[in-house]
């Protein structure tokens, strides 16, 4: 019970301090809006909008979540307020969940910005909404933990941003978002399969257009494995690097 009071307040503080601040709200929305405009306005055929939707949604989540953790974690570490959290009598696992829940929710919200845009441009009937929601949540969790993984591996906020891009930009091209993995050169394909977004985007494709190529259970399982790995590695890193 006591630990949950701490959890709730850490979460709420981040909400108020970061996520609900006007610059961050707009920052958070700029990515999805930019992606949306970039891809949708360029494609005059309505059907293509639906084809692009899973990719745009995935990117919105990816960029939204990973950029937040540089602030909520790396920055707080640098300003020493993260020490205050490490000194609190709550487990490191719960603490890190409290620090990431905001980003996960932020990512989920980000994913629906492109959907909103798309709803004006095309017919969205026949979409498997529960599956969309499930995959969006999973992608948000995995991307957030990818951001966490980066945030606890660096010391400076700018390093977090740079290091994130090291993951984010390859994902743009390698995850089958816009170029199907099958169309990539054979020697690059293995890379696609070690990137979590490949699986998330594939589920979204199935949900939106029923044209995913991987089995749903395999994709969910892979996302689950990435989530578990990224989270436990992050905890390990905090333990190793920040509790000296």
């Amino acid at each position: 019970m006591k630990a949950w009071i701490a959890f709730g307040n850490i979460f709420m503080k981040d909400m108020r301090s970061y996520y609900l601040k006007p610059p961050n709200i707009s920052w958070g929305l700029i990515f999805p809006i930019a992606w949306t405009l970039m891809f949708f306005l360029r494609s005059p055929v309505p059907l293509e909008v639906r084809d692009l939707l899973p990719g745009v949604m995935s990117l919105s989540i990816l960029f939204g979540t990973t950029s937040m953790l540089a602030v909520t974690i790396t920055f707080e570490r640098k300003s020493r307020s993260f020490d205050r959290l490490l000194l609190a009598p709550i487990s490191l696992n719960l603490l890190m969940l409290a620090k990431t829940t905001g980003a996960i929710m932020f990512g989920v919200i980000n994913a629906f910005v492109p959907i909103l845009f798309a709803s004006f441009l095309t017919d969205l009937s026949g979409i498997n909404w529960p599956l969309v929601l499930g995959s969006v949540i999973f992608i948000a969790i995995t991307s957030t933990f990818l951001g966490l993984f980066v945030a606890v591996s660096v010391s400076q906020v700018f390093e977090a941003q740079t290091f994130s891009n090291f993951f984010r930009f390859p994902m743009l091209f390698l995850c089958g978002l816009f170029i199907p993995v099958a169309d990539l050169p054979v020697f690059i394909r293995p890379l696609s399969y070690i990137l979590p977004l490949t699986y998330g985007a594939d589920i979204l494709k199935t949900a939106v257009n029923n044209n995913g190529v991987l089995s749903l259970s395999l994709s969910f399982l892979m996302l689950l494995l990435f989530t578990a790995f990224l989270f436990s590695y992050s905890i390990y890193n905090v333990n190793r690097r920040w509790i000296l």
Partner: peptide, 29 residues
């Protein structure tokens, strides 16, 4: 334990009262 480090580790953007309440919450109050 109550811990006051040699350098402040409170939140710059929170008010004094908010900082105190937040710290209380960390201990489950």
């Amino acid at each position: 334990m109550g811990i006051v480090p040699d350098e402040s580790n409170l939140y710059e953007e929170l008010s004094g009262r908010e900082n105190l309440c937040f710290c209380g919450a960390l201990y489950g109050m």
